[in-house]
């Protein structure tokens, strides 16, 4: 798969960090503003997809990327489960929100919701990786087979 014109390349080069930043912002502020792990994860994967579309898959070694995607997907879900287990060991109940009940921050602060932002982060990684894997499977893999 070939890349696109120089315009798309340059603009995506400029935009990608901002998009990624917005994605992280949505993930981190998931408990305060609309959005959260899923919406943020979609934004995160958006910039990887944009890069591949702009530069073409020649520049990225797929097999490596695919493996990385499924790896970080696994890491994301394991992290999520680990957070749930943390609640189990600290509070005796699955998904018990340990930090929030021990140190309640004031409402609408960044660190106010205990474990929820961490779960959001895990979900964000998971969603981004899963969507990236889907994208690679559907788009890049197929085009390579036909050309």
């Amino acid at each position: 798969m070939k890349g696109m014109t120089v315009i798309v390349k340059k603009i995506s080069q400029l935009m990608v960090p901002s998009i990624f930043l917005l994605g992280l912002y949505v993930v981190v502020h998931g408990h305060l503003t609309p959005g959260g792990g899923f919406a943020g994860g979609v934004l995160l994967v958006g910039c990887f997809v944009l890069q591949i579309l702009a530069y073409g898959s020649d520049e990225v070694r797929n097999d490596l990327k695919k493996w990385r995607a499924s790896l970080s997907e696994s890491i994301g879900i394991v992290l999520f489960l680990f957070i749930a287990l943390l609640g189990l060991f600290q509070g005796g109940v699955f998904f018990y929100n340990t930090i929030a009940r021990a140190h309640p921050g004031s409402a609408l602060d960044l660190f106010s919701a205990g474990l929820i932002p961490l779960s959001n982060l895990a979900i964000g990684i998971e969603v981004a990786a899963a969507l990236f894997a889907i994208f690679l499977t559907l788009a890049v893999f197929r085009m390579e087979k036909h050309t």
């Binding site: 499924s70 790896l71 696994s74 879900i77 489960l81 749930a84 189990l88 699955f94």
Partner: peptide, 20 residues
């Protein structure tokens, strides 16, 4: 310790640990 969530948590965790 209550084992009820383990019915979901253990296979789910295993599912994603296996590829790792």
């Amino acid at each position: 310790m209550n084992w009820i969530p383990a019915f979901v948590a253990i296979p789910l965790g295993a599912a994603f640990l296996i590829p790792l």
